[in-house]
Amino acid sequence: MTKAVFAGTFDPPTNGHLDVIARAAAAFDEVIVAAGVNQSKQRLFSVEERVAMLTELVEPFGNVRIGTFDGLVVDYCRAEGAAMIVKGLRSGGDYDYELQMAQMNRKLAGVDTLFLPAAPENGYVSSSLVKEIAKLGGEVADFLPPSVHAVLLAKVGRGND
């Protein structure tokens, strides 16, 4: 059985994340979408809120489940018996950073990384940018699944938009 981990902060999950989840679900027997818990990072959504949003989004996929991790993703992969990490890439900058991480993860734990290039319509979308636009009153519906859009607007005080 091939098992992969798609790890991230998912603060909030975007259409780009959902695209990677769908493509990973088609490629692997089991995919674990793992939300990072690192307490030192400032996030808009709590881990419980991120897990709730992700749980709803992966419902259509019978081979995807949600998890959380704190620490090294390779340690989480080992604990889950996953030999592959899935990463979505939006740009060459993402590739430069993620390649180093992939090589380090392979050296540390023998865990390989599969890079999935972003679909063109998601190549410029990031959770950070979407949050900033939403906080400033801009429209972000095109970048988020509808359920996440509603939660984000409520979180930034625009719940009636």
Rank of each mutant, 00 (worst) to 15 (best):
D96G: 06
V58I: 15
K87P: 01
G88L: 02
R90G: 10
I66Q: 07
L114F: 07
V111R: 09
G93E: 14
V111Q: 09
Y76M: 08
R65Y: 05
R90H: 08
A79Y: 02
V64F: 06
Q103M: 15
Y97F: 14
G92V: 13
R65M: 10
A83E: 15
A83Q: 14
N63S: 04
N63V: 00
V86R: 02
F61D: 09
R65T: 14
R106E: 13
M84D: 09
Q100T: 14
F115K: 00
R65F: 03
M104R: 09
M84E: 11
I66G: 05
E56M: 12
A82L: 00
N63L: 01
R65G: 12
L114S: 04
S91Q: 07
V86K: 03
L99V: 14
I66S: 09
F69C: 00
G81S: 01
T68D: 06
V64S: 09
V86T: 01
V64H: 08
D75E: 15
N63G: 03
G71Y: 00
G71D: 02
L57F: 05
C77T: 06
Y76F: 15
M104F: 09
R90N: 07
M84K: 11
K87S: 04
I85A: 00
V74P: 01
V111D: 09
A79K: 12
M101Q: 14
K107G: 12
D96E: 15
M101H: 04
R90V: 08
A102M: 03
G92R: 10
V64T: 08
G93T: 13
R90M: 10
Q100F: 05
I66K: 08
T113L: 02
L114D: 02
Y95S: 05
L72W: 05
I85Q: 09
Q103V: 14
A102V: 03
V111N: 06
K87E: 02
Y76W: 06
A83T: 12
A82M: 01
V86S: 05
Y76L: 11
A83S: 15
I66V: 15
A83P: 00
P60E: 09
V64P: 07
T113M: 06
M101I: 08
I66A: 09
I85C: 01
G93N: 13
A82D: 06
V58H: 10
D70R: 14
P60F: 09
M101L: 13
A102T: 04
N63D: 03
V74K: 02
E59A: 15
V58D: 10
R78Q: 14
D96A: 14
E56Q: 15
D112S: 13
D96N: 07
A83K: 14
P60K: 11
L57I: 08
V111M: 04
Q103R: 14
F69L: 06
M101A: 11
G81W: 02
G71W: 00
T113W: 00
A83N: 11
K107F: 15
R78V: 10
I85Y: 00
K107V: 13
A82N: 03
G88K: 01
E59N: 11
A83M: 11
A102G: 07
F61C: 07
G92W: 08
Y97S: 11
M101F: 05
M84W: 14
V74I: 12
Q103K: 13
V74G: 04
A79G: 12
